[in-house]
Amino acid sequence: MLKQLSFLIIQAGHEIKNIYEKKNSLNIFYKIDQSFVTNADYISEKIIIKGLKRLTPNIPILSEENNLDIQDCISCSKYWLIDPLDGTKDFINNYYEFTVNIALIEKGIPVLGFIYAPMYNTLYYTWEGISWKEKDGIKKKIMVIDQNPPTIAISRFHNDIELNKYISTINNAKIIKLGSALKFCLLAEGKIQLYPRFGRTAIWDIAAGHAIISAAGGFLRSMIPEKKIDYIISSKKSIFNPGFIASVL
């Protein structure tokens, strides 16, 4: 299963990379909410859904670009949650940090997470409660690393007053701007110590990263204590979670 999932997400990533490198093959569309989506999103999604249906035909699949299937996941104890191209803005604006994300949700908790960064040819994943990084055929176990002052990663396209106020309370912190779920991966391997995100987030944006940092010894906490981060699909639950802080402590 590990090899098959790894092959599947890398295959999807390679198709995205091919479109990225051949700009004349890129097609950009607008979704109902006016956010961007591209043909690369759709091609990646098709590959992943087809592969998951072959591997686990009895487990429902919920994807960002095909979320009408959310009804199939209501009250499910287990389902796949995928973001076929996380960081579409980065992709369109010629940044390298876009990723492909796959998570397996059990009873509202992401128990497996796979994140592939095509332009870095790097795969991050959890397996049997351990987080791993695999690049150029070399696999190594990764763990969070505490450091003071910390390095903080923030989203390139989601800067706001609340975020700036929060960062100003942390003395001497180094700030880096990155796109996509790659921020979770850098936290899991000890390169950053904090990733704050104000405002709501869609469940497919964070599930795989949540699994990876948890297995690496990190934490993902809601900024609204009475609204915890979870991935339970119900008739009352939206596809969004509150803002969060991902950290080593």
Results as ranks from 00 to 15, higher is better:
2 L>P: 11
5 L>N: 05
7 F>E: 15
7 F>I: 11
11 Q>S: 11
12 A>P: 07
14 H>Y: 14
19 I>S: 02
21 E>I: 10
25 S>Q: 15
28 I>R: 14
30 Y>S: 13
32 I>M: 01
37 V>E: 07
41 D>N: 11
42 Y>F: 08
43 I>M: 11
43 I>D: 06
45 E>M: 12
45 E>F: 04
46 K>C: 08
53 K>Y: 06
57 P>V: 08
59 I>R: 08
70 I>E: 01
71 Q>W: 00
72 D>H: 04
73 C>N: 01
75 S>F: 02
77 S>E: 04
78 K>G: 05
80 W>I: 09
86 D>C: 10
88 T>W: 00
93 N>M: 15
93 N>Y: 05
95 Y>W: 12
97 E>P: 00
98 F>C: 13
105 I>H: 03
107 K>Y: 09
108 G>K: 02
109 I>R: 10
113 G>I: 10
114 F>H: 13
116 Y>P: 10
120 Y>S: 14
122 T>R: 08
128 E>D: 11
137 G>Q: 00
142 I>Y: 00
145 I>S: 10
146 D>C: 10
148 N>C: 13
149 P>W: 01
153 A>L: 08
153 A>W: 05
154 I>Q: 00
154 I>A: 05
162 E>N: 13
163 L>K: 14
167 I>Y: 03
169 T>P: 03
177 K>P: 07
179 G>V: 11
182 L>K: 10
191 K>N: 12
192 I>M: 02
195 Y>G: 05
197 R>F: 12
207 A>D: 00
208 A>C: 07
209 G>H: 04
209 G>L: 06
210 H>V: 02
210 H>C: 08
213 I>S: 04
215 A>D: 07
216 A>K: 01
218 G>C: 06
220 L>S: 10
226 E>S: 14
231 Y>I: 09
235 S>T: 13
236 K>M: 04
236 K>S: 13
239 I>P: 03
240 F>T: 12
242 P>I: 11
245 I>P: 01
248 V>H: 01
